[in-house]
Computed example of a mutant assay.
Amino acid sequence: MYIKGVRAMILKILKWGSSLALRIPAAYVRHLGLKEGDQVRANLTVDGGISIRVTRWDRNAFAQELASMREAMPMTESVIEELRRTARY
């Protein structure tokens, strides 16, 4: 895909502490609207490449994930109810 003012670039892998890192070119950052602290999702592709995509917080996806986690929780006695039952007044 060609985006006006943003062309394919060859990037150099650099050492960053004990890891390796790529710098994201400023034109890419501007086009995607990224800022420091934003998160991206990296995946390996079947052809041996790396796909990096911007992640945006999705309220619906979060609600679905929360609902599925809640369904997986065992239904047990409330901690508060247990404290009240064992409390000494």
Rank of each mutant, 00 (worst) to 15 (best):
I52R: 04
P25R: 10
M69D: 02
R56G: 08
I50C: 05
I24K: 06
R70M: 10
N60E: 12
G33S: 11
G48R: 01
V79I: 12
D38W: 08
R30N: 14
H31E: 08
I13A: 13
Q64I: 07
G33V: 15
R7A: 03
G5L: 07
I13H: 01
G48A: 04
K35G: 15
A27V: 10
L20P: 03
A42W: 03
S19L: 11
T55L: 03
R85A: 14
G5D: 09
I10M: 06
V29E: 07
K15C: 12
A61N: 04
L22K: 14
M73W: 04
P25I: 07
G5Q: 06
A63L: 04
M73Y: 00
N43Y: 13
L34F: 11
E81D: 07
D58W: 02
V6R: 15
A67E: 15
V79F: 12
P74G: 11
I10Q: 13
L44V: 10
T55I: 08
L66D: 08
L14Y: 09
Q64T: 02
I80Q: 10
L32H: 09
R84Y: 11
A63E: 04
G5H: 00
G17R: 05
S18W: 08
P74W: 00
L11H: 05
A67K: 03
L66N: 00
R7C: 05
S51K: 11
Q39W: 05
L14V: 08
E81P: 15
E82T: 14
A72F: 02
Y28W: 02
D38G: 10
A42N: 14
S18V: 07
S18N: 11
N43F: 01
A72E: 00
I24F: 13
A21Q: 03
K4E: 14
A72G: 03
Y2K: 15
L11K: 04
E71C: 12
A87T: 06
M69Q: 07
V46D: 14
R41T: 02
E77M: 15
T76F: 05
A42E: 12
I24G: 01
I3G: 14
N60F: 00
R23E: 07
L83C: 03
Y2D: 14
K15Q: 13
S18A: 04
I52T: 15
L20N: 01
P25E: 10
A67P: 00
L20S: 15
E65H: 03
M73F: 04
R70S: 15
Q64G: 13
R30G: 14
N43D: 09
I10V: 12
R84D: 05
R56L: 02
I50F: 01
S18R: 10
E77L: 13
R41V: 02
V54N: 07
R30H: 13
L66G: 09
V79G: 13
T76C: 05
